[in-house]
């Protein structure tokens, strides 16, 4: 494997608590991960596991209280102000909710041009680039003059992807980018993300609760449980021969869209639960 583009070392992330001199609550308890150029690292976990917080720490939106995040060999865990803003051309984001991630009162064109203009692009150059971006994500040119409310969820998510692509970043943090979308739209947006990656060689840190989605888009997968990465490895290994009991449970809990196969999986799951229950009992007795 080539040298990593992004690397987390014993990363700890906390959220501040309201109130005078109250200690922040630690959400992520020391995780290690790395993303190579052009690679997708899938981060899968359930609600409250800290998977989104890992992404926010990389983006500088959450407080790193231990360990480090390095990008291209440079520690970016405590960057502030101008240094953080300069990183915008390399690290971008696509959020889950396509409704609140676009300012309702700005036109699509204004939203897409903003990251370019703050980087000193001229207005004409930015306008030209916006049209290219719209074309790249499969939206019509006249979308630039319209407001977000005129678009469906899937189309808005395309706009959010276009915004992330604007400065030609090397890493995009995707925080559940397809979870809020309908099934048929979801497949199309995933296809777009794959396409872009193959074209531009951008790396993804892809956060999701949906194993099927992660399996489809990731080269490697990390499974997060209670603020720790309990299992990490190539996608086939993790999703076909999971070692950690939690990963096993997670895999069997996801229902297959086939009544007959699902019945088998259900039985398998019941069996696993019994086995793990017995192990717990023995561990308790020992």
């Amino acid at each position: 494997m080539t040298t990593p583009l992004l690397e987390g070392r014993d990363l700890k992330v906390s959220y501040p608590v309201r109130g005078f001199r109250r200690k922040p609550i630690e959400i992520v308890h020391g995780v290690d991960f790395s993303v190579a150029p052009g690679e997708t690292l899938g981060i899968v976990g359930e609600s409250g596991s800290g998977k989104t917080t890992i992404g926010r720490a990389i983006l500088g939106l959450a407080l790193v209280t231990g360990g480090s995040v390095t990008f291209d060999g440079r520690d970016i865990s405590h960057l502030g102000g101008a240094a953080r803003r300069a990183l915008a051309k390399d690290i971008q984001v696509v959020f889950q909710d396509p409704y609140s991630s676009l300012n309702p009162s700005l036109t699509i064109g204004a939203t897409l041009a903003e990251p370019l203009i703050v980087q000193g692009w001229s207005k004409e150059a930015a306008t030209k680039r916006v049209l290219e971006l719209l074309d790249r994500v499969g939206l019509p040119k006249n979308a630039a003059a319209r407001l977000p409310r005129e678009f469906s969820g899937g189309q808005r998510q395309r706009v959010a992807i276009a915004r992330a692509l604007a400065p030609e970043p090397r890493l995009i943090v995707c925080d559940e980018p397809v979870s809020a979308l309908d099934l048929s739209t979801q497949a199309k947006v995933m296809e777009l993300l794959l396409d872009i990656q193959r074209d531009m060689g951008v790396a993804y840190l892809f956060v999701s609760h949906d194993l099927a989605v992660v399996r489809h888009i990731s080269h490697r997968v990390g499974v997060v449980y209670d603020g720790e990465i309990v299992e990490q490895g190539p996608v086939r290994e993790v999703t076909e021969q999971p070692e950690h009991p939690y990963t096993q449970r997670l895999l069997l809990a996801a229902p297959i869209a086939d009544p007959l196969l699902q019945e088998k999986r259900r039985a398998e799951r019941a069996r696993l639960r019994q086995v793990q229950h017995n192990q717990d009992v023995q561990a308790g007795a020992a």
Binding site: L59, R85, A88, I91, Q92, F95, E114, V118, A160, A166
Partner: peptide, 9 residues
């Protein structure tokens, strides 16, 4: 948040 990530002051 997206604007912050985009380097907007």
């Amino acid at each position: 948040d997206a604007a912050k990530v985009s380097g907007v002051t």
